[in-house]
Simulated scan of single mutants.
Amino acid sequence: MESERNEALRKRMKPSMEEREEDQLSNGTVMEITEKEQSETNNVGSEEMEANISQILEKIDRFTQLVSELLESGKTMFKELSNEFEERLFMIHKEQMEKWQEEIKELRLIDASNEESNSLLNNARYLLQNPLS
């Protein structure tokens, strides 16, 4: 498994790097020292790194909670606005319908009055045209 990994690394490296890699592989102590140094660095840095990661995760959780709260309050606000808009629109419609109904009543009263006046005028015209027939 490790030989496959080393082979893959060699294929990726430049020729001069391959030579250095072969020198280091032939001298196993250099690799062991490098691995120990890396593991010591990882161990020393890992506690600090974990603390930093933990802080970032806490920030993510707080931000996610804030976004969730904003979404919920936004939904609530839009629902309230939607309900108010709908009620206001219905009220405007109702008021306009009542206004037009009132106009229709007035027009009918005017029409009835005009018909009555027209009938009186027709009667008067008939009487004037045929005074004592």
Rank of each mutant, 00 (worst) to 15 (best):
N6G: 07
N6P: 00
A8G: 10
L9V: 05
L9D: 05
K11Q: 15
K14R: 10
K14P: 01
K14T: 06
P15S: 12
S16D: 12
S16I: 11
E18W: 05
E18H: 10
E19I: 10
R20D: 07
R20I: 10
E21N: 04
E22M: 14
E22F: 09
E22S: 10
Q24C: 04
L25T: 02
L25W: 05
T29C: 00
M31Y: 02
E32C: 03
E32K: 10
E32L: 09
I33G: 01
I33N: 08
I33C: 05
T34E: 15
T34L: 15
E35P: 00
K36F: 08
K36T: 11
K36S: 13
E37T: 09
E37G: 08
E37M: 14
Q38D: 07
Q38W: 12
S39R: 14
E40M: 10
N43T: 15
N43D: 15
V44G: 01
V44E: 05
V44L: 07
V44D: 04
G45I: 02
G45M: 10
E47Q: 11
E47A: 11
E48Q: 08
E50G: 00
A51L: 12
N52K: 14
N52W: 05
S54R: 11
Q55A: 06
Q55F: 03
Q55E: 11
E58C: 01
K59G: 06
K59W: 03
I60Q: 01
I60H: 01
Q65I: 02
L66C: 04
S68K: 03
S68N: 05
E69A: 14
L70I: 04
L71P: 00
E72Q: 06
G74C: 07
G74A: 08
K75H: 07
T76C: 02
M77K: 11
M77L: 15
M77T: 11
F78E: 05
K79D: 09
E80H: 04
E80V: 02
L81N: 07
S82Y: 04
S82K: 07
F85I: 02
F85T: 02
E86K: 10
E87N: 09
F90H: 13
M91W: 06
M91K: 15
M91N: 12
I92T: 07
H93R: 09
Q96W: 06
Q96I: 09
M97A: 13
M97H: 09
M97Q: 14
E98R: 05
K99G: 01
K99E: 11
